[in-house]
Structure formats: structure tokens, C-alpha cells
Simulated assay, not measured.
Amino acid sequence: MPPLTWRVLGVAAVTGILVVLLAWWAGPSLFGSAPEAETRTVEATVTLPAECTNPNAEETVRFELDGATRNGTLSGCGHNRDEQVEIAVPHDPPDGLIDVQLASTAPGTSDLRRPVGLALLVLGCAAGATYAYLLARGPRRLALA
């Protein structure tokens, strides 16, 4: 088997870099696209706080939506009365109380998928290159002194 030369290692390195660049160019959809915005973020005021000792605690919030004051139930606890929070409200809310959630916990708010996915891709390329190198090198025999 021919020894590994700089040319062979260079081809492997360029191939790995091209894979990463193509993945970057493919865009966020490669690592899972963000869901369509099914909610909108609005400011809300906590009107009826809940104690965190209660299981399944729900708080009542008041917010402005399309020019009307609406009320909603927020699954959570620990806020103070008249505290301002950002909530995610459905685009087509039902009449009456609306089930809302904190905007920071709504699906699709994490932008870490792309950098983490690319980092894992780079690590995968490095691991594959190391494995290919070890296979090409073959077994080594230890020389006993």
C-alpha cells in the first residue's frame, strides 16, 4: 500500500472543507427548518399569579390583540401581579380565554440548531478522516527493546 503523502491528505482536507461549505450553503433547512410562525409575540400583564407549589399552575394574563383587550391562561408560575411578560399568542385565537405560552419557550426560538449541526458535521468529517487514515496505515507492530 502506498504511504500517505501530503497530496492524499490535502485531497481529504479539501473534500472535508467542501462538505462543510456545501452544508453551510444549503442553509438552515439542512439541520431542520424553523417552523412557520404560527404565533405572534405580544406584551402581557399578569393579572392573577400562581404559586409554584401548585401542580399544573396556571396564571391569568391580559394583553392587547388586534386592538382588543384579551385574557389568556399561561401555563407557569412565579410571576408577580402586574408583571410584564412576553407571550406567544396563536394567529387565529379562539373566543374567550386563550391558552398562551411564554415567548422564550415557544418552539422555533432557538437559533442554535445551525451552528451545532455544523460543528457536529465538522467533527464527523474529522472522525471519518481519522478512521480512513488508520485503515490506510494498517496495523502497527510494537518493537520490543
Rank of each mutant, 00 (worst) to 15 (best):
T69W: 12
L121E: 05
N54A: 15
W25R: 14
G32R: 00
P115D: 00
G96V: 03
V8L: 12
E43M: 12
V122R: 02
S104V: 11
V20T: 01
D92L: 08
V8T: 13
V85S: 05
T73K: 12
N80A: 15
T39P: 02
R40E: 12
L121R: 03
P115K: 00
R62T: 15
T53L: 11
D111C: 03
P93I: 01
P49L: 02
V85F: 03
D95S: 14
T47D: 10
E59S: 14
A88L: 05
D95N: 09
N56T: 07
V46K: 07
L142N: 10
G32V: 00
A119V: 00
V85L: 08
M1C: 10
V19I: 15
T47Q: 15
L102R: 10
N56S: 11
L112R: 08
A57G: 02
I17D: 04
G96K: 06
L144M: 12
G78E: 09
E43I: 08
N56M: 10
P90W: 01
A103T: 01
A127R: 04
A106I: 02
N71F: 13
E38Q: 14
G16W: 07
F63G: 00
P94G: 07
L74C: 06
A37P: 06
L21M: 12
F31S: 01
L121V: 04
Y131F: 15
T15S: 15
P55K: 10
V61Q: 04
D82L: 11
A57T: 00
G108T: 02
E51L: 10
P35M: 08
G138V: 01
V100M: 06
A12V: 13
V85Q: 04
A136W: 10
E86T: 09
G32C: 02
R137Y: 04
P55R: 13
R114Y: 06
L30F: 00
G108D: 00
T41N: 07
A34E: 13
G32Q: 00
I87Y: 03
T39Q: 11
L22C: 11
Q101Y: 02
R7V: 14
R140N: 04
L9S: 12
T69F: 12
S104W: 08
P49K: 04
D92I: 01
A129I: 11
G138N: 07
T69D: 09
Y131M: 13
F63T: 02
L97V: 05
T60K: 15
L4C: 06
T73L: 11
E38N: 14
G138Y: 07
D111M: 11
L97A: 11
G10M: 12
P28H: 14
V100N: 04
T53D: 13
A126C: 10
G78A: 09
R141G: 07
L48I: 14
L48W: 09
G138R: 08
D82Y: 13
A129V: 12
